[in-house]
Design a protein around this nucleic acid. Structure first.
Length: 260
DNA sequence: CTAATCACCTGAAGGC
DNA sequence: TGCCTTCAGGTGATTA
């Protein structure tokens, strides 16, 4: 499912395609997908810039923003003409260039918000995991103030934004930390290791164009390749690469792995 | 405060 | 073939 790396690949690809393009029309085919907090649709607005916080993609318009969350199955597909599939098409942004940015979403969980202020949507979203302001010190401050399972903490977007099941499992595995380990009991050295692995694994996944397990696609409809390098996610009942024991799943929530 | 559960939705996969 | 159940899991709301 799309997490920070997938969303960042999509944002980067779109950046070169839609900046300085003018919106001609927006068509919506599922009543909940497009959430308009403004008076009108942003027709005739220029797309000035793109940004990303956690799993949210942000299009800065002239006076307001489009904020997109793909949730589980959302896809943003860019096409240069009107010859495209309408299966699972929930929203379509037509540009004056004749191109379309189409939002496909089989499960209908994804959203496009049209807002005049970002805080109306992003007020509960914490610091982006790849932000330069997200430092090791900042991480440890948040970590040691909590007393909860480390995976649950990392999943909570109000502290660190962008991590989901795939990359949390990979980061914890690489750091040798059990997903249910309590945050306040994690050793200083392990916390630092985890911090560095978060940055490392996210950046590697971006280089690999994201992880395609089922629905994630790049804006041209292509697959990522990072699924070929996963060490623990999606490997239930397979042998651990480190100790050869069998990887087990707990509560649909996390993976357990046994160390030598 | 945290944890657990449900709701939102659909399609794929597996059992019978 | 077909019906039924389970599972995938991001987020927000609700309950304990």
């Amino acid at each position: 499912m799309p997490e920070l790396p997938e969303v960042e690949v999509i944002r980067t690809e779109l950046n070169s395609k839609i900046i300085n393009q003018k919106i001609k029309n927006i068509s919506n085919f599922w009543h909940k997908t497009f959430v308009n907090y403004c008076q009108e649709l942003p027709i005739n607005d220029n797309i000035i810039n793109t940004d990303r916080i956690g799993k949210y993609i942000i299009f800065q318009l002239e006076n307001n923003y489009l904020v997109i969350h793909l949730r589980m199955t959302g896809q943003l597909i860019f096409t240069e003409n009107s010859n495209f599939s309408t299966k699972h098409l929930r929203s379509s942004i037509e540009l004056f260039s004749g191109s379309y940015l189409n939002f496909y979403d089989s499960r209908k969980f994804g959203r496009i918000y049209h807002v005049s202020e970002l805080k109306s949507i992003l007020s509960n979203v914490g610091i982006d995991a790849l932000s330069e302001d997200f430092t090791n010190k900042h991480f440890k401050n948040m970590l040691f103030k909590q007393k909860r399972g480390i995976k649950s903490f990392l999943l909570d977007q109000k502290y660190i934004a962008g991590l989901g099941n795939i990359y949390i499992d990979e980061c914890l595995f690489l750091s040798g930390i059990h997903p249910k380990k309590l945050t306040n009991e994690i050793k200083n050295k392990d916390a630092e290791k985890l911090y560095l692995n978060i940055k490392k694994i996210l950046n590697l996944a971006i280089e690999n164009m994201g992880t395609t397990i089922s629905d994630y696609r790049t804006t041209g409809g292509g697959f990522g390749t990072n699924q070929n390098f996963l060490k623990v996610y999606n490997r239930e009942n397979e042998e651990c690469f480190r100790c050869n024991s069998i990887i087990q799943k707990i509560n649909n929530e996390a993976f357990v792995y046994i160390f030598i």
